[in-house]
């Protein structure tokens, strides 16, 4: 099993957001997480990455308990994270951003970047541009590419389509589908756009009030009635 989460609890200060989330992700799987705002999607990814301490429960990555490890230690074990907001190094060029991402790769830097760029034709043309001068969509592609440069085993993606123009979203879907075909990477994806999550995820977990309450298929989320039932009404 790539990732196993048992009864995970975490939150901000006195407010518990995750209230005992349990699920697992197999090697090579693409799993989507769907739920209302405030149900704990982003918090879950932050807790998995170690940015929020777990107050209870456990997280196991490829059989190894990582519940108490720092974000850096988790990254070294192969956990990649593309947060909302992208966090591009604005003053560095695209190439430099990618090189920053290569620290954890065991291959030669040039080879790693070459391999990743093969998936991102658009970035090829922008290598010498400053990260800060890219458009939002291009930055999102760069954030994903930079993460892949570290040869992660499991990538946590937080709403990669938010605020991105339609044509670049298509590119992101194509890139991720190519990754899925390659089968040597596992992805846990938080996403609000139903068509996007349906196109990418093999399995979809529903999160409600900080716990994984149901599991469904990509086909099911195309049905508005089912979605209303699964995700639950906000108000």
């Amino acid at each position: 099993m790539m990732l196993q989460v048992q009864g995970l609890r975490a939150g901000y200060g006195r407010i518990p957001i995750l209230a005992g989330a349990s699920f697992s992700v197999a090697q090579g799987e693409f799993v989507g997480i769907l739920g209302h705002n405030g149900m704990g999607k982003t918090t879950l990814l932050k807790a998995l990455m170690g940015y929020l301490p777990a107050t209870a429960g456990s997280v196991t990555l490829e059989g190894r308990d990582i519940t108490r490890l720092s974000p850096t230690a988790r990254a070294r074990l192969g956990l990649g994270y593309v947060p909302q907001g992208r966090q591009i190094f604005g003053a560095l060029t695209v190439r430099e951003n990618l090189r920053m991402g290569c620290l954890l790769s065991k291959r030669p830097e040039a080879e790693t970047i070459e391999a990743v760029l093969a998936l991102f034709p658009r970035l090829h043309r922008l290598l010498d541009r400053a990260g800060g001068a890219l458009s939002g969509g291009e930055q999102q592609l760069l954030a994903l590419a930079r993460c892949l440069c570290g040869d992660p085993r499991l990538v946590l993606l937080d709403e990669p389509t938010e605020g991105i123009q339609p044509s670049i979203n298509e590119e992101i879907v194509e890139t991720l589908l190519a990754l899925r075909r390659s089968r040597d990477i596992t992805i846990l994806l938080v996403e609000q756009k139903l068509d996007f999550i349906a196109a990418l995820a093999q399995r979809i977990l529903i999160i409600q009030k900080g716990a994984i309450t149901r599991e469904t298929t990509p086909e099911a989320v195309q049905d508005p009635a089912l979605i209303a039932e699964f995700v639950g009404m906000a108000a």
Partner: peptide, 11 residues
Amino acid sequence: DEPAAGMTHEE
């Protein structure tokens, strides 16, 4: 400016 970003389908 991008009012629907980060919102669920229902929202």
